[in-house]
Design a binder for these strands. Structure first.
Lengths: 213, 213
DNA sequence: TAGATTGTTAATCGATTAACAATC
DNA sequence: TAGATTGTTAATCGATTAACAATC
C-alpha cells in the first residue's frame, strides 16, 4: 500500500464516489467502468482512476470495477466502514436539522450527544437525544470517546465552543459558523457556509455564465 | 475595469472577506491592511491582494484599505449590495433551518417563497412564508422574478425539482441533496454536502494529521 | 525623508487531464 | 486474437505565494 498523501479534493471526490456506489450496489449493479462513473458523477474518468491510484489498484483492465468491492474499500479508506461517533453542539434550528438528517446514518455517522448553553434547552430532548450543558462536554466525552464534532452555534459563540471541543479531545470539527476557528494544528477543521455559497452563485448569475462548482 | 475571469476560489474568499469587513465596520474599524486581514481570516495577505486585483485597485500603498469602501465594493462585485430574492424548495427540517437562518438576511439574501410537494405541508406556513405547491413554481416565479434557488429535498426528488427550477427561469441553484444535478450549461450549481465534509474529516482524523479546509 | 504597504510580476506549487503501455 | 479499460506517466493547466518596484 502506497504512502498516500492524497489531495483533499481527492478525498472529497472519494466521498462522492461512495455515495453513488452505495446506490449502484443497492440497485444490484455489479460492475462499473470509470467512464460510466463519469456519466453519473460528472467527474472525469481519468480523475476517477487517478484518485483511486493514491490508494492502490481497484479495477481490472478491460473489465472495470466491482461495485461492492470498490464501495467497501473506499469506505475503509475514509474510515466510515464502522460507525463514527459525532458530537453536536447547538440545539437550534440548524442543529435540529443536522441531528434529524437521514443521510448521516446512511453514511455511518452517529450523533451520540447534543450540547447547548441555553438553560431553556438543556434537559430537553432533540430527536432521541438529551440536550446536555456544554459545560459537561469534556466529562461526557470521556465516555463517548467521539473524535468528530459539529458546531452549529452562532458565530460569536463558535470559537469558545471550539476551545471546549479541543479540550474534550475532539480531533476534527465541522464548523457551520461563518468564522475562522483558531485550533491547534493537529485538529482538522472544515467549514460549511451556505450563505457564502449563495454569494458565489450571485456573482455567477450576474455574469450570466455557466459554472458548476 | 479589467475583464475579470476570477477563479472560483477567489469568489469564495471574497465572500469571506465581506463577512469580516461587515464585522469590522460594525465595530468602527476604519482602515485595515492585507496582513491584518490575514491575521483574522487565515488567508495569506498576498492572496488577499491578488484576489482583489482581479477587480481593480482598492487600497493605498503604505496605508491599507478603507473598511467601509472595501466592504461596499466587494458587495457590489458579488451582487449582494441589493436584496437578492431566493426560492426555497423543500419545507422539511433542513428547509426550515435554512429559511430561519439569520445570516441570510445579514448578507442581503431574502427567501421570498417556499415550495413543497407534500399536501400536508402545502398551505401551511414556514416562518412567515406560505408553503406553495411545487407545481405552482413557474407561475409564481413570474411575479417573484427570483434567479437563485435552494434545493432542500431528498436526493431522489432533487433532479425533478431542478428541472422545475430551470423551467421557472432560475439561473443558479444551491443544492443540498447529495446528487449531481443535470442542468443546462448556463445554470450555475453549487453543492453543499455536510455528510461528505464529515467523511473528509473522518479520513483526516484517522491520519492523525493537521489540515484545515 | 523613512517606513509601510500596495498592486503586480514571476516563481512555485499542486491538481487535472490526456495519452498509452499493460492487461484482462 | 481483438476490443475494452485499467493504472500511471507526462503534459497541461491553474492557483498560490514570494518578491519587489511603485506609491503613499
Amino acid at each position: 500500500m502506497p504512502i498516500h498523501r492524497a489531495p483533499v479534493p481527492t478525498l472529497e471526490r472519494l466521498a462522492t464516489y461512495l455515495t453513488y456506489l452505495n446506490e449502484l450496489d443497492a440497485r444490484g449493479v455489479e460492475m462499473i467502468s470509470s467512464s460510466e462513473m463519469e456519466a453519473r458523477t460528472g467527474i472525469n474518468a481519468a480523475q476517477f482512476r487517478k484518485d483511486l491510484s493514491y490508494f492502490g489498484e481497484f479495477g481490472r483492465p478491460g473489465i472495470g470495477y466491482n461495485v461492492r468491492e470498490l464501495k467497501q474499500r473506499i469506505a475503509r479508506i475514509l474510515k466510515v466502514e464502522n460507525e463514527q461517533r459525532v458530537l453536536l453542539v447547538g440545539a437550534g434550528n440548524l442543529g435540529s436539522a443536522i441531528a434529524g438528517y437521514p443521510g448521516l446514518r446512511a453514511q455511518n455517522f452517529n450523533i451520540v450527544a447534543v450540547f447547548d448553553n441555553n438553560y431553556n434547552k438543556i434537559g430537553r430532548r432533540l430527536w432521541e437525544l438529551d440536550i446536555h450543558d456544554i459545560a459537561d462536554l469534556k466529562s461526557l466525552n470521556k465516555e463517548m470517546q467521539a473524535r468528530l464534532a459539529i458546531i452549529a452555534v452562532p458565530a460569536n459563540a463558535a470559537q469558545e465552543v471550539a476551545n471546549h471541543l479541543v479540550d474534550a479531545d475532539i480531533k476534527a470539527i465541522l464548523n457551520f459558523a461563518p468564522i475562522t476557528l483558531k485550533v491547534p494544528a493537529e485538529v482538522a477543521v472544515r467549514n460549511v457556509d451556505f450563505v457564502q455559497e449563495l454569494a458565489v452563485l450571485s456573482f455567477l448569475v450576474a455574469r450570466e455564465g455557466a459554472g458548476d462548482s
